[in-house]
């Protein structure tokens, strides 16, 4: 599949996701209450948004897919695999923090991120992960008025 075709597919997917969610939200809002006081803002915005999604879908069908904007060399936003790996690591961090403790989760996240990005010096990986993870957790645990689940702090 060529790049413009992938891009066009991704564009179509995003439009479909937005339009789909908007339709579901509108239906949910109407089913909750169809009184003017409930629809006064949501109905016109949703109708406008659906119209715009339709317009954008038509534009996508008619025009050839626009080439991607030239990225800055080192930003490389098209490194999809790398971005998805970081995203997965971040998701694992967020979803595990409450279960395994914020201190352990933060140390693991920082250390694994460094390893993922190619850092191989054990002292740097372990030192930075342990120092940053513990310091930041301690700071927030003292400052925030809520209890935070911890593994050792």
């Amino acid at each position: 599949m060529t790049f413009p075709a992938t891009r066009r597919l991704a564009d179509a997917l995003v439009i479909a996701l937005i339009a789909g969610w908007t339709l579901w939200y509108l239906a949910d809002t109407v089913s909750a209450s169809s009184r003017v006081t409930n629809l006064i803002f949501i109905l016109p915005v949703a109708v406008l948004l659906l119209g715009l999604c339709g317009f954008e879908a038509l534009r996508l069908l008619r025009a050839p897919a626009a080439p991607a904007p030239a990225p800055a060399a080192e930003d490389d936003p098209e490194d999809l695999a790398g971005t998805l790996k970081v995203m997965a690591l971040f998701a694992a961090y967020v979803l595990s923090a409450e279960r395994i403790g914020f201190d352990l989760a933060t140390c693991l996240f920082v250390g694994l991120y460094l390893l993922l990005k190619g850092e191989r010096r054990p002292l740097i990986v372990l030192g930075y992960a342990a120092l940053f993870g513990n310091l930041v957790t301690l700071f927030f645990a003292r400052m925030l008025p809520y209890p935070m689940p911890m593994a050792w702090l």
Partner: peptide
């Protein structure tokens, strides 16, 4: 910087 800022954001969001 990236893991540090992402962690700070997580703590901030929790707070």
């Amino acid at each position: 910087l990236i893991p540090a800022v992402l962690s700070l954001s997580v703590f901030g969001a929790y707070g």
